[in-house]
Design a protein around this nucleic acid. Structure first.
Lengths: 199, 199
DNA sequence: GTCTATACGTAGATAGAC
DNA sequence: GTCTATCTACGTATAGAC
């Protein structure tokens, strides 16, 4: 392997790749498994071979670790271009293969409605943003009044609700819930388009 | 008020009404505000004028307090008779006036997908049950194939998802989300019935 | 950059007095 | 039935050595 010149291994045998990124990946896992309240810094640290105090060198508090993790995810999730309703099913399909990510969002978005939760604002803003984006997508293709008989705004709210609700049911019963199928069914209800991977 | 003979006030000036029930009410509040992990027994105890140790006399552990609280709620929530799709909107309307109850369910049902959570089984069973009940209701009125073009089972899954997802969005933005309106819109999409408090 | 030591708080639970 | 006292465990965070 000719990766020698690309990984200078400056400090010690460390495989570079920003320690911070490793930590954020571990944090995602741990927050998914235990929520923010249930998670401990020591557990996150352990997964990257650090002590709790070593971790605090990179992120000076648990809160800041959470925020950094959410910001990183937002960055990665940012869809480069607008996608069509059809492509939404693909996004959901992809999610169904990443239970960890689905679980962090489900757990944290709900936990964040509790008092003084550090991610409250984050999720409130995120929901508002996603609703707007979905509404724009629907409006672009179908106008303000969807074929199914609801407005683009109402349709966006329902679509977001269905996706979150399905994730919750799926996490509780992965074998009984088929998220892509159900989202496709929902889109058919709203748009009347049977092009959507259904019958 | 002639409530004297009904409240013997045996022990002391205590307003009877099972201490256990008071505790369960307080537990619901506190779990709603902080989730299970975030809540402390002391906070619950304080609200009913007890110390943490006094509370443990009635419920020997935090877990058992949670379970007892959920069982109690289930008992109260048990709908005496089957309700129709139209009545479902009323149920949602009633929920919109009880943010505390909506919040416990939203927070705990999501938190319960985390590792070793004491309410995991409870919510998994509850979801399965509600899906079945909703499917039966839809099937009874519309048969196996709903007018909107989805099966009764798929419709039930979607309906449950929408309700949970709307609650989450509503808790984050009470002024922007109208749960009864949106549920009515969802029912119209599935059943084609415009009788449902819509246009 | 990562560790040891440690301060400090809080939480759940037990034992036993009243 | 409710309290005081107490044990034990854990969690965040700071200070400072290496």
């Amino acid at each position: 392997m000719a990766s020698n010149e690309e990984t200078p291994r400056r400090g010690r045998g460390r495989p570079p790749g920003n320690r911070r990124d490793e930590i954020l990946r571990a944090a995602l896992e741990v927050f998914a498994e235990s929520g923010f309240n249930g998670a401990s810094l020591a557990t996150v640290a352990e997964r990257v071979g650090l002590t709790q105090q070593g971790l605090l060198h990179y992120f000076p508090s648990k809160q800041q670790l959470l925020v950094a993790m959410l910001d990183k995810r937002d960055e990665l999730d940012r869809q480069p271009q607008r996608f069509s309703p059809e492509e939404l099913v693909n996004v959901v399909q992809r999610n169904a293969e990443r239970p960890g990510i689905v679980q962090v969002y489900t757990v944290l978005s709900a936990e964040s409605v509790t008092e003084n939760h550090p991610a409250r604002e984050h999720f409130a803003a995120r929901f508002a943003d996603v609703r707007q984006r979905f509404a724009a997508i629907l409006r672009e293709k179908y106008g303000d009044h969807l074929p199914g008989g609801v407005s683009a705004d109402e349709g966006a709210t329902l679509l977001v609700a269905v996706m979150d609700g399905l994730q919750l049911q799926w996490l509780h019963a992965p074998d009984e819930i088929d998220m892509p199928d159900s989202v496709a069914a929902m889109l058919r209800l709203m748009t009347g388009d049977s092009v959507l991977s259904g019958e």
